[in-house]
């Protein structure tokens, strides 16, 4: 069986309060905070820190990795490799399999699937899956109230005594509505989010859970991790899927939405909250569909470990809206120019 041998989470310490963003645009209210990366952080630096923690937690040297797979929808490159850069900095061996999974937040589970398959067929012993995103929205848009930054890494390997959770079942589903899209250079939020969420997101989530239930005949899970850009969509999805609202594990309220990273951060949170033998259901979504995995918890890491996911959700250093714009490279626009 394939298992999670270790994980690492890195959430930037800087936070902007939603009230601060609303205040800058003459709006009132707004509860919650977003994690914000500084000017000298990007998906490589965020991802590397989570990857180093995952290896340290599992006590596995980087040269034992057979694969480094990175999922991100915000690397900023049309051609380059985040996985290659992270792998090199980790100190991986030359024969490692390197791949970037982008263009869809579903990529994080495509990466998990590819890694699990490579271990299952005996090609590699250990593989690292990293989700790292720094999402930047158009200033003033509603997306600005959810886009955040963060990274998490999961180390997969064959089940052994130190395994945190074992991969039980998986399913995939692709419906007719492809979902959101964004052309090169465009901000997030090009598509009509409500249309996408109602006609693609909810449909694909229902589809993939139906596929999963056919395989393992289960309809209820102890902890549920699911992709959602906002809490209201997570709640609607839970209702649609007839899942208990209290089973949801989500960092959205504390740090916002960080694309591929959010899925793995929430999976790490679920591992920390779970007890042995409990089942975690984790569902991804992105353009092109959904994938669902169930994990049976073997040896819960608890909250005592250094740099736990839970500890990093704590409020950090608050920054002002001008600082937020500067960090995100949004301060130097041409006068009167398009932002």
């Amino acid at each position: 069986m394939i298992g999670i041998q270790g994980y690492g989470v890195y959430i930037p310490r800087q936070r902007i309060k939603l009230g601060e963003i609303n205040g800058a645009w003459g709006r009132s209210g707004g509860r919650g905070e977003l994690a914000v990366a500084t000017r000298d952080e990007d998906v490589v630096t965020l991802g590397l820190k989570s990857a180093q923690q995952a290896l340290a937690a599992a006590n596995i040297p980087a040269d034992k990795l057979g694969a480094v797979y990175v999922a991100s929808v915000s690397s900023g490159y049309m051609e380059s490799t985040v996985a290659g850069q992270i792998g090199y900095a980790l100190g991986v061996a030359g024969d490692v399999s390197i791949a970037d999974f982008g263009l869809s937040t579903r990529g994080v589970t495509s990466a998990l699937r590819a890694c699990a398959d490579a271990i299952a067929c005996g090609r590699i012993e250990y593989g690292l899956v990293v989700g790292s995103d720094r999402l930047i929205a158009r200033p003033g848009s509603t997306y600005e109230l959810s886009c955040a930054a963060g990274a998490a890494a999961i180390l997969l390997g064959r089940e052994s005594t130190g395994t945190l959770a074992e991969l039980e079942e998986s399913a995939a589903y692709s419906g007719s509505c492809l979902g959101r899209y964004r052309a090169e250079g465009q901000f997030r939020g090009t598509t009509d989010e409500r249309f996408v969420m109602e006609h693609s997101y909810l449909d694909q989530l229902a589809g993939v859970v139906e596929q999963l239930s056919r395989r393992d005949e289960q309809t209820s899970w102890d902890h549920v991790v699911l992709h959602a850009p906002e809490l209201k969509w997570a709640r609607r999805a839970l209702k649609l899927l007839k899942l208990k609202p209290e089973s949801l594990v989500s960092s959205l309220g504390q740090i916002g939405y960080a694309g591929c990273a959010s899925f793995l951060i929430d999976l790490a949170l679920a591992l920390e909250q779970a007890r042995p033998d409990e089942i975690i259901l984790a569902i991804s979504y992105g353009p092109g569909g959904s994938e669902a995995f169930t994990w049976q918890v073997k040896c819960a890491p608890g909250l005592e470990r250094p740099a736990s996911a839970q500890s990093q959700l704590e409020p950090g250093e608050n920054i002002s809206y001008p600082t937020y714009l500067r960090y995100n490279g949004l301060y130097a626009q041409q006068p009167g120019g398009q932002t």
Binding site: Y10, I11, R13, R39, D40, E41, D42, V44, T45, L48, K49, Q53, S80, Q85, A89, P306, A307, S308, S311, Q312, E314, G316
Partner: peptide, 27 residues
């Protein structure tokens, strides 16, 4: 590990330094 500078669109990385903290986020 941080971005040091950008060279024609390529982020170039190296190590900067932060106070040593036993946990990533000590409240």
């Amino acid at each position: 590990y941080r971005v040091m500078y950008r060279d024609e669109g390529l982020n170039v990385y190296s190590y900067k330094f932060a106070p040593r903290r036993n946990v990533a986020h000590d409240p």
